[in-house]
């Protein structure tokens, strides 16, 4: 399990990184935290001809509340999100902090980066799910300059994104706060990727749900929005009954894979259960917020 040979370059600015990617050709890859990439290289499942190490671009490490929304620098370590205390951020985005504990293990979270996880595009990765759930936009820089890619266009399949080979994510923007959002996942062993994960966000007025978002991980090749489940919730009086129905509706419409961790039917059951539990957690936050006030 020793990786194949590659050429190593270090970039200290985004411009330099993009320039080197352009020079080195399509087989070159960016190296950020490397927590998925290096493991895959050790297995020789991927063998980039060159790596451009961007870990040293320290000005891409930040979490900033920006009016309503939130901006996360692409090279922000997971651990920063897990330990953030800024009430201005937590008020609207506590789901990021609470989901961070599901991201790998502690030493993985110290090196792994937010943007790296998004670019890796594992469909059950927490950040990819939350980006889809909360309509995040990826700020991407390439030889032609900067562009924004909405999450709905960004994730295209297993480990496949809308990024061009010579492009780099520099920031992830969450446009709106989501105080009543939650993520739940189920893995057989602590710290593993979830067999299925569910993320939900609710917009509540009194006991009524004005709008809802439901995203599943582990059931498709991308983090999957489930409009059918959202429709069950929208306009409904919130409560276990409707949560259960939303989960069951999702279980009906998905077409998950079967593998050694579980059959498709098991994943459907998990999807229903985890949606219900995530909704319960999200609503509990309403009460927490009220109590806090």
């Amino acid at each position: 399990m020793k990786p194949a040979a590659f050429e190593y370059r270090k970039a200290s600015t985004v411009e330099e990184a993009v320039e080197q990617l352009t020079q080195l050709g399509d087989d070159a890859k960016l190296l950020a935290g490397g927590q998925s990439l290096v493991a895959m290289m050790n297995f020789r499942l991927v063998r980039p001809s060159a790596l451009v190490d961007v870990k040293g671009i320290l000005d891409l490490q930040y979490v900033e509340a920006n009016g309503e929304g939130l901006k996360i620098g692409a090279l922000t370590p997971h651990r920063w999100i897990e330990t953030m205390e800024d009430p201005g951020v937590l008020e609207g985005f506590s789901v990021l902090k609470s989901a961070a504990r599901w991201v790998g293990h502690y030493p993985i979270r110290t090196l792994g980066t937010f943007g790296g996880s998004i670019a890796h595009a594992d469909p059950s990765a927490e950040w990819c799910m939350l980006a889809t759930l909360l309509d995040a936009e990826m700020v991407v820089v390439g030889p032609g300059g900067e562009r924004m890619i909405p999450a709905s266009d960004f994730f295209q399949g297993f480990f496949t994104t809308a990024l061009e080979p010579d492009e780099m994510i520099i920031e992830v923007r969450f446009p709106e706060p989501a105080p009543y959002a939650a993520l739940q996942e189920f893995a057989r062993r602590a710290g593993d990727y979830g067999i299925v994960a569910a993320a939900v966000a609710l917009d509540l007025q009194g006991g009524e749900c004005r709008s809802a978002r439901v995203v599943l991980g582990g059931v498709s090749d991308v983090p999957l929005r489930i409009p059918e489940a959202e429709q069950v919730l929208e306009g409904a009086d919130i409560g276990q009954e409707v949560f259960k129905e939303a989960g069951q509706e999702a279980a009906k419409v998905i077409d998950p894979p079967s593998d050694v961790q579980g059959t498709a039917e098991y994943r459907r059951d998990l999807a229903a259960t985890l949606i219900q539990r995530a909704l319960t957690e999200a609503v509990a936050k309403v009460k927490e917020a009220a109590d806090a006030r």
Binding site: M1, Y8, G34, R79, G104, P107, L111
Partner: peptide
């Protein structure tokens, strides 16, 4: 394991625990 699961290779890098199998020496 050399794929970041077992943690036998954990060291501190600038004070923080990391898997030394998931990081190139040059980094």
């Amino acid at each position: 394991c050399e794929h970041g699961i077992c943690g036998a290779c954990t060291v501190l890098l600038d004070g923080l625990p990391v898997r030394s199998c998931l990081l190139f020496g040059v980094q």
